[in-house]
């Protein structure tokens, strides 16, 4: 069976005044039907740009330089504006980080939801309202019919993000790209939404790409993990396996810096240095300047290699830990 989404060698650059910014470089992965894939990496590693590239929404001066994005067997790179637009929202949707910035403050929630429906179908007034109410109810907004008349500022932060999720769900897309949808919320609501989204995806059979810089968050929703560094995927595999035995030194570093992974009383370990500028990447492996295991042969970019489900981009991978 072929995957729902197949990304191959995706490369997206921004032509800026300071040179070519290689935001996404040779990214390949798959998402199966109903699967939740986590995409982690620190700020600026190219996670959002990867998401936008899939939807065909890269802003100028950015452009997809090469690669392929196949969705349900259909190639999206190079597809016309009209065809892409009609796929967005209907086949695949996206939810952003800050719901108070994504929702339009001067339109009621109902108006915004109807616009999202009208983008794809002509639906009567009553039927549209019914669909809006249904979507709001699914994401756990009580008294949905009345809430349609409310403006975004009349919702709490968590409720606002639920509204955004409801809008993404309106046309029942097969894939939702969630770009850090819980980062702007406080921790208890974060956990709530996380759990709900997970069961929602299972119930509706919706596949998700869950983007976050927080390894712990992603691990709690996703079944498979992609770790991104400086525009490239440097490690991929099932969540449990990656967490138990990371093979790339960067993933190891990320894990060590997680509070939940440290033993109580033990200092958190920071990765020394910072991510290089995407306009001026070092020769070879991008992590080389910060890597404790770097050697002369790291000056040539290693390929993404691996065994079976696990893949990593490193010549000197960490040993596979024997299950303890």
């Amino acid at each position: 069976m072929s995957a729902l989404l197949e990304v191959r060698g995706l490369t997206t650059h921004f032509d800026t005044r300071g040179g070519v910014l290689k935001a996404v470089e040779d990214v390949s992965f798959e998402v199966g039907e109903g699967e939740i894939v986590g995409l982690v990496g620190e700020s600026g590693s190219g996670k959002s740009v990867t998401g936008f590239s899939i939807l065909g929404l890269v802003d100028a001066p950015g452009r997809i330089v090469s690669g392929s994005v196949r969705f349900a067997g259909r190639e999206l790179v190079g597809l016309g504006h009209g065809a892409l637009r009609s796929m967005r929202g209907r086949e695949m949707a996206m939810v952003f980080q800050d719901p108070s910035a994504t929702l339009n403050p001067v339109l009621t929630v109902g108006q915004q939801m109807r616009l999202a429906i009208a983008a794809h179908e002509r639906v009567g007034e009553a039927a549209a309202t019914a669909r809006c109410v249904e979507a709001l109810t699914i994401v756990g907004i009580p008294d949905a019919a009345r809430r349609l008349e409310n403006y975004p500022h009349q919702f709490s932060g968590g409720m606002r993000q639920r509204v955004a999720i409801a809008i993404a769900l309106l046309n029942r897309p097969k894939l939702i790209i969630c770009d850090e949808p819980t980062t702007a919320l406080d921790v208890s609501i974060q956990a709530q939404i996380l759990t709900e989204m997970k069961s929602l995806a299972a119930r509706l059979g919706t596949a998700m790409i869950w983007i976050s810089h927080d390894l712990a968050t992603v691990s709690s929703v996703a079944s498979r993990l992609l770790v991104m560094y400086a525009g490239r995927i440097i490690e991929a595999g099932p969540v449990a396996s990656v967490l138990r035995s990371p093979r790339h030194p960067y993933t190891r570093g990320l894990l060590n810096s997680l509070p939940s992974m440290a033993r109580p009383g033990q200092d958190l370990v920071q990765i020394p240095g910072s991510m290089p500028s995407l306009a001026n990447l070092p020769e070879g492996c991008s992590f080389r300047p910060r890597c404790p295991k770097a050697q002369e042969d790291c000056k040539v970019m290693p390929a993404l290699t691996g065994d079976g489900a696990r893949a990593f981009r490193c010549r000197h991978p960490l040993d596979r830990e024997v299950a303890a």
Partner: peptide, 10 residues
């Protein structure tokens, strides 16, 4: 993001 979100909704 408002415009981006509207675009993402098609």
């Amino acid at each position: 993001d408002t415009v981006k979100f509207a675009r993402a909704a098609g």
